[in-house]
């Protein structure tokens, strides 16, 4: 891994010159494929299914961007990244877009020279424990051994939380979610901590989900969102507004099924602008006017994507909570399309 990272960094330099000059959009169009940084495997967010095809909440955003830019949601190459390798992969140009449960923080946005363009999942860090451990609160975890994924914000939050509560703990630092789950299952740690959504996903994939419980404490704010490289604002705009198009579509009741019909018959000026019937919004992004229509037609609006991958009908059973639309008491809010 040392060598890969180092060579990657060196190679990054050489490649970056070309990328920065040409612009990511031109690059993606010329390549005909969107390189999307995905999770190595977090069910519901980004994981290969039985056929090896990537599926999930984050993956669907990659597909929407591919549909908007290339006109075909299948033209995505998923690059599996770990918590450690993800930002290097993005900074080096190995991926055009990173949608991998990455928390938006000040230092990543500034010092790491990345741009978080939106928040597609408002999350917080929690703890997963075995039910028979008899623990009902994170405050009772003093002296416990805790599995954490390295290279994440959770590792820092954990240290802060235990310090502010004057508790001791033993960290077991693992490379990715899969390894963390294995260690947790083998009993090498008492608790597994990551974003609450990740815990719900992990719990759903454990052999007997009912033997495990997510503790009530949420110890941090984890706004997760798509990330692009700093400096290519046009590409950032495309990803940001593709995402907002999905949110706006939910608000306006545009679904995968009725998107064509809405485009043909809607009289709402905002819907008409969004779907490219009116105005020339696509041109401002460097795309054609049907970009948003294709993005929505790919896997539906934000609500549909949430329900198919994470909602009550899936094994993960996450409620919308903070991720409901602003009009329904949540935080998901798209700026006006005008």
């Amino acid at each position: 891994m040392n060598k890969t990272l180092f060579l990657g960094t060196l190679a990054a330099g050489a490649m970056l010159a070309g990328i920065a000059a040409a612009g990511t959009l031109d690059d993606v169009k010329a390549r005909g494929v969107l390189n999307c940084g995905a999770n190595t495997g977090l069910t519901g967010f980004g994981a290969p299914d039985a056929n090896g095809d990537y599926q999930g909440f984050d993956v669907d955003l990659c597909k929407a961007v591919a549909a908007a830019v290339l006109g075909d949601q299948s033209k995505v190459k998923y690059v599996p990244t770990t918590g450690e390798t993800r930002f290097t992969a993005l900074a080096s140009g190995e991926v055009d877009l990173l949608v991998r449960n990455s928390t938006w923080t000040f230092s990543r946005d500034t010092d790491l020279k990345l741009d978080f363009v939106a928040v597609n999942y408002y999350d917080g860090q929690g703890f997963l424990v075995r039910k028979d451990l008899g623990v009902t609160s994170a405050k009772e975890l003093g002296g416990a051994t805790i599995c954490i994924q390295t290279g994440t914000t959770t590792e820092l939050n954990l240290a802060d939380y235990f310090k502010s509560n004057s508790l001791e703990y033993t960290p077991v630092t693992v490379v990715d979610d899969a390894d963390a789950q294995r260690q947790f299952l083998a009993g090498a740690c008492d608790a597994f901590t990551t974003d609450a959504s990740g815990l719900a996903s992990a719990r759903a994939t454990l052999p007997n989900p009912d033997d495990y419980v997510v503790l009530p404490e949420i110890i941090s704010k984890e706004p997760l969102g798509p990330v692009v490289r700093h400096g290519d604002n046009n590409w950032g705009d495309i990803v940001r507004w593709t995402y907002y198009a999905l949110v706006e579509a939910e608000e306006k009741g545009i679904t995968k099924a009725n998107v064509e019909e809405m485009a043909a018959s809607s009289t709402d000026p905002e819907v008409r602008r969004l779907l490219g019937v009116e105005g020339e919004q696509g041109k401002f992004l460097g795309l054609d006017n049907d970009w948003a229509k294709r993005a929505i037609a790919a896997n539906g609006n934000y609500g549909e994507i949430f329900e198919t991958n994470l909602g009550e009908s899936t094994p993960i059973k996450l409620a919308r909570g903070l991720n409901a639309l602003w009009s329904q008491g949540g935080l998901q809010y798209a700026p006006p399309f005008r």
Partner: peptide, 19 residues
Amino acid sequence: RGTLGGITLNQTGRELECM
């Protein structure tokens, strides 16, 4: 490798320096 080349590298984003 785990501290300087792992967690520190990731949390600071200083790949080249750490390596």
